[in-house]
């Protein structure tokens, strides 16, 4: 919560727009850019690699109000080599950060499951940060017919 709470959403958005107009980022949808900025706020500057992490969700959500998600990472979960954090972001939600999980070698297995809200059809991202500072990413498109954020 700490990092996210300090995060000023307006500043993040303004920064994203500024970066886009200066041509620093490739043209991407605004939702993806906002999620990029929030991911940097959570993890600092990083280069995410594909692989190691798996995101399991249905392609078509039964309900946007409560969709099961499982994120697992290949890791021995030893003191020397473990997953420190898993972050889940939903690009198309009003506030894209969904949850951040902080794991320890006592977790034994780098896998978490929970249920999440999806406002509309969108891409869900999962990031894993390992103890050596590497960042891994997995993405999945989820089709939502009934949104689950209210309003």
């Amino acid at each position: 919560m700490d990092t996210a709470a300090k995060l000023n959403r307006r500043a993040v958005l303004a920064g994203t727009v500024a970066a886009a107009t200066m041509g620093l980022t490739a043209p991407r949808p605004a939702a993806a850019q906002e999620a990029d900025a929030l991911a940097r706020a959570l993890m600092g500057p990083f280069k995410a690699k594909d692989g190691k992490i798996r995101l399991k969700m249905r392609d078509v959500a039964a309900s946007g109000a409560s969709e099961p998600i499982t994120v697992s990472v290949d890791s021995p979960m030893t003191a020397a080599d473990h997953v420190k954090a898993i972050h889940v972001l939903a690009e198309g939600n009003p506030y894209p950060v969904v949850s951040s999980w902080h794991l320890t070698p006592r977790s034994g297995r780098a896998e978490i499951s929970f249920r999440m809200r999806l406002a509309k059809t969108q891409t869900v991202r999962a990031y894993a940060v390992t103890s050596d500072g590497e960042v891994w990413i997995a993405r999945q498109e989820v089709t939502v017919t009934i949104g689950g954020c209210g309003g």
Partner: peptide
């Protein structure tokens, strides 16, 4: 587990009502 952290999480608005979570722990 006996006072030692196993896992913790920061949740935001998109965590569903009646939040369910599942994770693992080493039996120490």
């Amino acid at each position: 587990w006996n006072g030692e952290p196993v896992i913790s999480a920061d949740w935001h608005q998109a965590v569903s009502a009646n939040p369910f979570s599942s994770f693992f722990a080493v039996a120490s």
